[in-house]
Design a protein around this nucleic acid. Structure first.
Lengths: 347, 347
DNA sequence: ATTGGCAGTCACGTTGTGTGAGTGCCAAGA
DNA sequence: TCTTGGCACTCACACAACGTGACTGCCAAT
């Protein structure tokens, strides 16, 4: 059976291997840590760990390296998150403290997270599920083209350009349409808006259909698509820095993370832990072409209770302790920032 | 002196080296090409080319490799651009043919270009210099926060959120302000708008200053910042695919291209050639941390004559012929698409 | 100007050898 | 039953020696 000391041994193996990228042997363990036992005993423990597939020996006669399963046990045991240094805390403050615009806040956040962890950082835009429509604008671009701008109370702006009929657009009618749309949809959640839109066209004369129909249907798409997420990334270069941690080239990894859809699926499938925190290690991500990377994510809440995730992605051999602390801290700070800032009245 | 045949030799050296990534020797040249002379003669030519620093021998006794200067001469001589295959032409059509939204067109363009060239593709957003203000929207977000949305006739949307005074915002006044701003600025170019804004605040009572002033100054920033460009990128993974073409790690390259500002400076400094096309090779980009990469760019015109650039970036050892053709073709197609599409009346 | 020939250089792949880190096992001790 | 020291064994790795082959540079002859 795997004793308490065995787990301790696993812990130091992971630690040393993370620090040095070299297989760690029994001898170096007794030298560096005071286990109070001899190397032979450590070897016995290591045999047990190997039995349990928590570590492996790359060659017959070399030190041991944690397996994915080993990392998993290590991470699950990791209760005492190394607190951030005061310098790191201050970095968070100064980095995020000033900005007000959602775009800017998230852009800064992703850069910050990348710098704190030296990994690829990811920040998901808040889903618009719970956000409400603040304003809706129709802007005539030309005689037959109209731009629709949708602004939600999270500060997010979506736009779309559409072609309306072949008859020239009537400006005054467009203004009327805008007014009606705003009064019909303003303040509604996106699901409510979709419902309202379904019958919205009925109040107009059929002759107007050529203008109203495409706008409504396009708006419908926009409202539905609003739930489809967007994602920021920073620090991709860090993958090249830690290139030796990948068996082959980093090409497939870069390719995988360039595809936003992949990352969004990954975010979606990561079981949100009790405190919104989740870790996915190595092969657990194999289906995304990311079998040699680990992903740490944490949820954060934007205004209106909208939930989104942020996190970091890096080689399986990463500094979990530090990175988990950073992800947690940033997620908390961001939640506070967005919550406090946007959570006002609603007019 | 460097004879005509010497230049031919340079050409085939570049060609072969690009194809094989191996130093090319005199022997393999006479085998593969019908120069009608012996290897020794080729060797003499190569000696001349080496004298001129167009090629170098990595080791005393190995084939030759083009220098940056050699690539430069090669590219400058390159008149017969390999025309795109019909498959490539069709890819352009089907890829870009359908979309109408500027964001979407550019997003598709950058992906397309990356796929055609297997390099990192870059597309700069049209500068707003020549574009005119189509519409301006003020949206109250809360009692003290207002979102400004600026829409130009290129279909670009910029927004910004600002904090206005400590007194609650007056909705009706905001509506009036919006109307006045639109009538004052609508249809103006950005430079004109900046001028108009300078005196815009004067028409309001001083008591309104706490609301008007921040909006006007923020709008001013937005108008000026409008010229600051934005940039899309795709295919960064390709750098990892051609990793062997970089002496060290690709880390510095990835790092450099992650910084949009760097790329924008690079775009800015690339002398636009006669037909708007420009090539920058190897060390010519050293100041950007891109001394081992080449950049091919071409200008394209959006509506209103606004000029922007697009291009590809890759290792110095790249297929110039193919990539130049692709960049040219895509730039032309994009110009036509944006020109035709957006260049309509203006109401 | 071109050519064939020839000597010289040097990267690279192969093979052989020693070295050291580290393991597994076992018998003895607590 | 757990721990320990000892010992034989394995094997990656670094290093040196050695061909081999692909070049080049030079030169005398055409």
């Amino acid at each position: 059976m795997v004793s308490d000391r065995s787990l301790e041994v696993l812990r130091v193996i992971v630690q040393d291997y993370i620090a040095s990228r070299e297989p760690v042997g029994s001898r170096s363990i007794v030298e560096r840590y005071s286990f109070g036992v001899s190397a032979a005993t450590i070897r016995n423990d290591m045999a047990i760990l190997e039995e349990e597939e928590l570590i492996v020996a790359p060659h017959t006669s070399s030190g041991r390296v944690p397996t994915d399963k080993g990392y998993r046990v290590f991470v699950d045991q990791l209760t005492d998150l190394r607190p951030l240094t005061s310098a790191q805390r201050q970095a968070i403050e100064t980095f995020l403290g000033q900005s007000t615009d959602l775009d800017e806040v998230l852009a800064r956040t992703v850069r910050l997270l990348s710098q704190l962890t030296h990994q690829v950082a990811l920040v998901q835009y808040p889903t618009l599920g719970h956000s409400r429509i603040r304003h809706l604008e129709l802007v005539p671009l030309s005689s037959t083209r109209v731009m629709i701008v949708l602004i939600t109370d999270t500060g997010r702006v979506d736009q779309r350009i559409i072609e309306v009929s072949d008859s020239p657009v009537d400006d005054t009618f467009l203004a009327e349409l805008r007014a009606r749309l705003n009064s019909a949809l303003g303040g509604l959640g996106l699901t409510g808006a979709a419902a309202a839109l379904a019958t919205f066209g009925d109040q107009f004369a059929p002759t107007r259909a050529s203008v109203v129909a495409p706008i409504v249907s396009s708006l419908m798409e926009l409202v539905v698509a609003g739930r489809q997420d967007k994602l920021l990334m920073a620090g991709a270069a860090n993958l090249a820095r830690t290139e030796e941690d990948f068996s082959g080239s980093i090409y497939p990894v870069l390719e995988a993370i360039e595809e936003q859809v992949t990352l969004l699926r990954l975010f979606g499938e990561m079981a949100p832990g009790p405190d919104g925190f989740s870790v996915s290690i190595g092969r657990e991500n194999a289906s995304f072409g990311l079998g040699e990377t680990s992903v740490l994510t944490s949820g954060y809440t934007a205004s209106g209770g909208d939930l989104a995730r942020l996190g970091v992605l890096g080689p399986t051999r990463m500094d979990y302790s530090n990175n988990m602390a950073a992800v947690r801290a940033v997620a908390r700070y961001l939640s506070r920032l967005l919550g406090d800032d946007h959570n006002d009245d609603g007019r």
